[in-house]
Design a binder for these strands. Structure first.
Lengths: 250, 250
DNA sequence: CGTCCAATTGACGAGACTCAAGCCAGGTGG
DNA sequence: CCACCTGGCTTGAGTCTCGTCAATTGGACG
């Protein structure tokens, strides 16, 4: 379960596989040059590894280069709530970097590669690269927006709507990152993850997902959820779908 | 219900009544001078006024100078979820400023005064005042942290725990702003607000609050919730309480 | 004195939880 | 190669939390 990440030098930012995606805004050569100096290497994790733990003081700031993970908190008695999922391009450890101690944990759902940034250079980023500083705030505001949607879902949607919303949400985020190019559109989570995201029990989550499957909207596959009918899911959730403008990337 | 705010010139930032509070970090004269130029006036709202509406393009950025409000989203059929509450020192409209359209609405719970900032000067803030830019990111991260706690609560705590958590949370935030100096510690919300925050029905919320009242932890007063035993509430919620370091203020 | 809003209360049903088994695939060790 | 184990999915039964409906109270206000 808990694995230390392996450190390596990694790819230079100039050749970053994410930047060319249409999802991300374009970058000045100067910005990329700074980010290159900001980045001190990469960390590689297996599936089901603890990437960051609540209470930890994260020395660094990270960007997800590849893979899936999830961000969660736990109560003392073991109840777990998943707050959000992390995917390529997402920033990880910002809270810890800004405010000291991490208030949540992050685990991987698949092999994950993180870009590691030097915390001490953060001040330089704010001083010398206001556009990137702005981007950091923007990314924090984006996370807030996702949390708002999630909260709306858990607080006010029925179990069926919630489940449909979650799967549609994850599908759309992954699709916009072109993670499904291989033909398969499988989201690498277990039903326990779904339950802990939706605030439901595992048993009831299972029965709810069955209903969505019975309508032909999805199928539970070997290693996750296979989406069959994204429009159907959106309709059940009563959700317009993700509408993301071009995103920055640190 | 819906009221247009009234605009006025307002107090100069040098004499801001919030800054001297021990809760906020100290500021350089230069920073205050910039913020003074950044601020273009004040907006005053009555109780129960719509401060910002979902879908609106907010022309400006705001800081709450005084009063209480709440931030919420609605589903098409009228179900409402309150995401968080806004209190003095909180920034309002950042999402709208950064990303265009507002994705949530804000209403006042009491008379509210907002400081109005010129959106067009935001770039200058990032260019010339990296510490303030950093503060903006910090504040966004703080909001995220509150949302995380809230999500944990709604997803995984029982109705009684949730209610205790919410009241304790609001009480502590208000106390740290010294809003209760007058002797009264009344949180100006209705049970409908509590219900819409906790994701419960009004009836069940009422019964839950009665249980807390029966234990002597609070009392429902004329115009809100009167906290009697904050430690008792924290204990029921299984929560350590707010632990906030010195905060920035824009 | 009526009206309105918020709080309250009781009755009843639906949705969600817990408990308890069973199933199936993949991995491991003999 | 097979027996065993484990993790994740499935299912049924019984219980309880929580939602809905409906009616009432009580204070504030005109």
């Amino acid at each position: 379960m808990i694995t230390e990440g392996k450190f390596s030098k990694g790819t230079p930012c100039k050749e970053c596989p994410l930047r060319p995606l249409p999802l991300f805004r374009s970058f000045e050569a100067e910005e990329i040059a700074f980010v290159s100096r900001f980045k001190i290497g990469e960390l590689v994790f297996d599936s089901n590894a603890m990437i960051l733990a609540e209470g930890e003081e994260s020395e660094h700031l990270f960007t997800v280069l590849s893979g899936w993970g999830f961000r969660y908190k736990m109560l003392d008695d073991g109840r777990r709530q998943i707050m959000n999922y992390v995917m390529p391009g997402d920033i990880v450890g910002l809270q810890g970097t800004l405010m000291g101690e991490m208030q949540h944990s992050i685990e991987s759902l698949s092999p994950v590669v993180l870009c590691v940034f030097q915390r001490s250079k953060l001040a330089e980023l704010y001083r010398c690269h206001p556009e990137l500083a702005y981007d950091l705030t923007w990314i924090a505001a984006r996370e807030e927006r996702m949390l708002d949607e999630n909260l709306l879902s858990i607080g006010r949607r029925s179990a069926l709507e919630r489940a449909a919303y979650l799967i549609a949400f994850l599908y759309q985020r992954a699709a916009s990152l072109e993670l499904f190019r291989s033909g398969w559109s499988v989201i690498p989570i277990t039903q326990q993850h779904v339950a802990d995201t939706l605030g439901l029990s595992l048993v009831h989550t299972n029965k709810t997902l069955k209903k969505l499957a019975a309508r032909g909207l999805l199928r539970w596959a070997e290693k996750g959820c296979d989406v069959h009918d994204i429009d159907g899911l959106l309709a059940v959730a009563g959700w317009d779908g993700l509408c993301e403008p071009k995103r920055p990337l640190i």
